[in-house]
Design a protein around this nucleic acid. Structure first.
Lengths: 227, 227
DNA sequence: CCGGACCGAGAGCGCCGCTCTCGCCCAGGA
DNA sequence: TCCTGGGCGAGAGCGGCGCTCTCGGTCCGG
């Protein structure tokens, strides 16, 4: 059956709340995000918000999922499947960094310290995987076109990377070399480390030109994974 | 002149406060660290704490500096200058990860999202650099012994890495190749990214054996910098 | 010995997350 | 048509937070 009028207005108000919360998040950061302030901005009593989100953590979870989705969308939009693998790789990395710089507090919410007593629900996993999927597709396409170094053919006794992650990182390619999987996951961690270092201020005074440093670093990582 | 009795007892109480705060930090994390709870643990009025720390952020700053120092000490202790460069590199990385796993909340305070309105004072810089110094010394020693790839000798028009950081990363070696400097900084970012991913739960389900994955990843990074 | 610096305690302010209760309003069944 | 029940917003309130101010007490140096 179609949504009733009640359900529609409820969904609208829920969207308004998340929108206001996202504004707050962008302004003051996750730690200072206050349910009461969101309610004030919306002109309603703070207690009324609890009809829509059982707790502040649930509101944050909503923002986390939306953030992963927005980041994933940015990465997907930046990938041009017709370009050369190495350029695709760097372009996606640039897009991730660009999104992070445009939304620093959201990025910090996604990849910074987890909030105090908060354990990421499983809902966030598929959204969080989107960037990995894009990176994996670049790798998989490169492997299919033979641009990746040859498979050694000597599998280790036990793989370091789980099968699901290997599938994502392989981008549909059936059997990426275990070393490539490892390097792909390492590169993804390194992308995250590089962006976080820059955003969280650990690079101030160390890097002269952040843009050029990032491009050079991503080129190194592309070389590491074999692109 | 020697410290007066007043100064001594003041220093002692300050130490007790930071110790209690460090316990709180280890238990509940930085975001939930409460000045009032520290005061309760010490059996004093919360207002009395402000005689010793002007604000919660100042107490946090103290903990941050101590954390950097402890981490730096762990890294220094793990470095055996008589070992082979590659083993030294991996050993230091292992030590950093070990400290991070033993003190997850402190690590998150150091390298996670910066706290809301908090801007890291300059006091934290020297303490924060200690790990970099250790890593740089490994690199510099390797370069001096000729274990690092030959310098290309073609400097870029402008260095990406600042002179001070290049000096630290060079570990006293006069002229490390610019590419090596870049890779060293990238490797340091990657070490941080790898540990953070593991600690913040972004690797759950992706990595089968965290210990083996970390060792393999650090070996890759060692190869990247030329060790 | 005395004045002033230092100190701890208490009360209080404005926030916060969260709960409970109370009236309202509107939709759907009798 | 009326009535009733469920969703809803508002208000009051609880305990906890960071932080400030004021007030006595203590102790040290001149």
């Amino acid at each position: 059956m179609p949504p009733t009028a009640r359900e529609r207005v409820r969904a609208e108000l829920t969207a308004e709340i998340t929108a206001a919360a996202r504004r707050q998040l962008a302004e003051v950061g996750a730690a200072a995000l206050s349910l009461r302030a969101v309610a004030r901005e919306l002109g309603m009593a703070s207690s009324a918000l609890y009809r829509y989100f059982p707790s502040r953590d649930d509101l944050l979870t909503r923002l986390i999922i939306d953030g992963y989705d927005a980041l994933g969308a940015a990465a997907e939009a930046a990938d041009d499947p017709t370009a050369a693998p190495r350029e695709r790789w760097v372009a996606v990395c640039r897009a991730v960094r660009g999104w992070a710089r445009a939304h620093p507090h959201e990025y910090a919410l996604l990849y910074g310290s987890p909030v105090p007593g908060y354990a990421a629900p499983r809902d966030t996993v598929p959204a969080a995987a989107r960037v990995g999927v894009v990176l994996g597709r670049v790798l998989g396409d490169a492997a299919r076109s033979g641009a990746l170094p040859a498979v050694t053919g000597v599998p280790r006794d036990r793989s370091l990377i789980s099968d699901e992650t290997a599938a994502v990182l392989g981008g549909g390619h059936p059997a990426l070399d275990d070393a490539v999987r490892l390097r792909a996951l390492l590169a993804w961690s390194s992308l995250y480390g590089t962006i976080s270092f820059e955003l969280f201020g650990h690079l101030v005074g160390s890097v002269e030109d952040a843009d050029r440093y990032f491009d050079a670093a991503m080129a190194e990582l592309a070389g590491l994974v074999g692109l």
